[in-house]
Every structure is written in structure tokens, then in C-alpha cells.
Design a protein around this nucleic acid. Structure first.
Length: 306
DNA sequence: GTCCAACCTGTATC
DNA sequence: AGATACAGGTTGG
């Protein structure tokens, strides 16, 4: 089906949004973006205040697109809650219209489990290989796409086949998470009902602590909660965000913490350091800290912080 | 509790 | 060419 979505003055930049490392399956062909989402293929092109859309199925309609890109939210208002200081002002101006995407939960969690200690091209490859091997095929415009494989499919996949997707040591992580879901020990939609601290504690203390999950540390948990559970205060800290904080916001933290952050910002953060930094960042940037994080992430990358 | 080496794999750099 | 470093962290000791 074909349709258009009017932004009605809401700031939105499709390119920034899709290239901000939140999603790993969208592809750019000419002026169109193709996204295998929710059992179909969605095709989007932006012309200023208008989004031209085409999709393979009726479910992928205008309201789906609004929901996916969170277009009914007042981005200006949201930005206003965290845009204090020169750095954030610059970041927001530079990437104006960048929005959080509301992803499917299982795909989001699985993708970020695969993202650990990796880079974007590599993550895209791992996800693509996994979909190619385990996802259901679907045809659109004469080309074959793949759905993201179900948790059941991954749970039942032999570890060796998963490893063939180039997942490396992440293969058992992914399988374990899939098993937890498939066996009904982990219900992502229920997790999404909890508020942020509860959901995160459940993921990390209960589920990870009991080894029911593997490969879901604080960063992966935050990505999952922010990108697929509407936990806008979640503040994922990867190396880029750590560098941005160390570089631009050293005074946000106590001297000891700032030093540890500066020295560690090229490597991974320990659990306690992660907690203290992300809680400081959350109280500084407020209830939409997750949006702020996304702008900071982009800024750090464009400036090649290291 | 906290620290840190090891980890799959592909690519860049020397 | 072969070695080394590093990438959107997490694990296990």
C-alpha cells in the first residue's frame, strides 16, 4: 500500500534517525529507505514535512509509521527538557530531528546482545546472517527479504548453526536469551510494564544474576529498555557516550569518578562505575535522558572523540 | 564488592 | 605477509 504521513511541523530527520545506531536492518536505496519490520517491508522517503511511504502489508500503515518513529510526541518540548548548556545545544542543532525509534522488543534485545564489543558494520552483518539463516522469507517488489527470526526459532537452533552466522562468543548468549523467552521465563511485554528501575533490576539482578540470561549487561539492558520499552530515562553508556561525558561533562561527576571515566572511556566500564555515571547523567538530563544520550552519541561520533 | 584478562570476528594499520 | 589494535560489553576468575 502507498500513503503519505504529514509531520505537521514536528521535527523529524529520517536519515539521522535511521543512521543513529538504533536499528541495524534498514537499507538506503536511492532516496528510499527499506525496513523489514513487523512481518513486512516498509519503504519510506522524506521530503521536508512529508513522509512518502509504501509497504508490503496493510498493517504497516500511517499509524504504524507514527508509532514507529514516535511522531506524535512533541520533540521540541522533549528537547527543551534536556537542552541546557552549550554542548547539548550544539548537538541538538547539528542533529535536529533525530528521534528515538520504537522497536519490536525481541528483535531489539537480540540485536543489542549481538552488538556487544562490536561495531556497526559487523553488527549489521551478524543480524543479516542470522535473519538469512533463520528468518522467514518474504517477497516485496520482486526482491526477497527476511523476517527477524522468532525467539523460538533461535532457541531451537543448534549452537553450531548460530555460530555460522559469525556471532562468535555471542552465539550462546543469543541462544540463552531466546530460550528464556521461549520457555516463558522472560516475558518482554511484562517487563515493559514495569517502570525503569524495576525493569532494569529484574533484568540484571534476577534474570542475569541467576544465569537465566547471558550477554545482557547494563548497556544492553538500557538499549533494550530505551529503544523498545519506552523507558525514556534509560541512558545507555557505550564507549562513545562515555567519551562524550568524559570530554564534555567532566564536572558532572566527582573528581574520582571523572578520573576513572577519563581513563576508562576507551575501554569498558565496570558495573558500579556504569551505575554511578548513568545515574548522574539521568539526574542531569532528566526524564528524557535517553534522547539526550542519542544526541550525545551522534556528537561524539561526528567529532571523532577518542 | 571490585578489578581485569579473555573473548569471536572483521577490518585497519603498521 | 604476519602481527597488532580495536570495535556501540560481558563473563568468569
Amino acid at each position: 500500500m502507498q500513503y503519505a504521513v504529514e509531520l505537521g511541523g514536528e521535527p523529524f530527520n529520517l536519515e539521522y534517525t535511521l543512521e543513529s545506531g538504533q536499528v541495524f536492518r534498514w537499507e538506503n536505496k536511492g532516496e528510499w529507505w527499506y525496513g523489514p519490520v513487523d512481518g513486512g517491508v516498509l519503504k519510506v522517503k522524506q521530503d521536508r514535512d512529508l513522509l512518502y511511504c509504501e509497504s508490503s502489508s496493510d498493517g504497516l500503515d500511517a499509524s504504524y509509521v507514527r508509532r514507529l518513529f514516535r511522531l506524535d510526541e512533541d520533540l521540541k518540548g522533549i528537547i527543551g527538557t534536556f537542552m541546557k548548556g552549550k554542548v547539548m545545544t550544539n548537538a541538538v542543532q547539528r542533529f535536529y530531528g533525530l528521534r528515538l525509534i520504537r522497536q519490536e522488543r525481541w528483535e531489539c534485545l537480540a540485536s543489542f546482545v549481538l552488538a556487544t564489543n562490536s561495531n556497526i558494520p559487523s553488527i549489521r552483518r551478524m543480524v543479516a546472517n542470522t535473519c538469512e539463516k533463520f528468518g522467514e522469507p518474504l517477497l516485496y517488489e520482486g526482491l526477497r527479504y527476511r523476517r527477524f527470526p522468532s525467539a523460538e526459532k533461535i532457541a531451537e537452533a543448534p549452537l553450531e548453526s548460530l555460530a555460522e552466522c559469525g556471532l562468535g562468543y555471542r552465539a550462546p548468549f543469543l541462544k540463552r536469551v531466546a530460550e528464556a523467552i521461549h520457555e516463558g521465563r522472560l516475558e518482554l511485554s511484562e517487563l515493559a510494564l514495569l517502570d525503569y528501575p524495576e525493569a532494569k533490576e529484574l533484568l540484571l539482578k534476577k534474570l542475569l544474576g541467576s544465569k537465566l540470561l547471558l550477554g545482557v549487561g547494563p548497556k544492553v539492558a538500557d538499549c533494550f529498555l530505551l529503544f523498545s520499552c519506552d523507558k525514556d530515562e534509560a541512558f545507555p553508556i557505550d564507549v562513545w557516550v562515555a567519551r562524550a561525558l568524559a570530554h564534555y561533562y567532566p564536572r558532572l561527576f566527582g573528581e574520582t569518578t571523572a578520573k576513572r571515566l577519563a581513563s576508562k572511556s576507551t575501554r569498558s566500564l565496570s558495573g558500579s562505575l556504569y551505575d554511578s555515571i548513568s545515574s548522574k547523567a539521568r539526574s542531569h538530563f532528566g526524564k528524557y535522558a535517553g534522547y539526550a544520550q542519542q544526541y550525545l552519541f551522534m556528537l561524539a561520533r561526528i567529532n571523532g572523540l577518542a
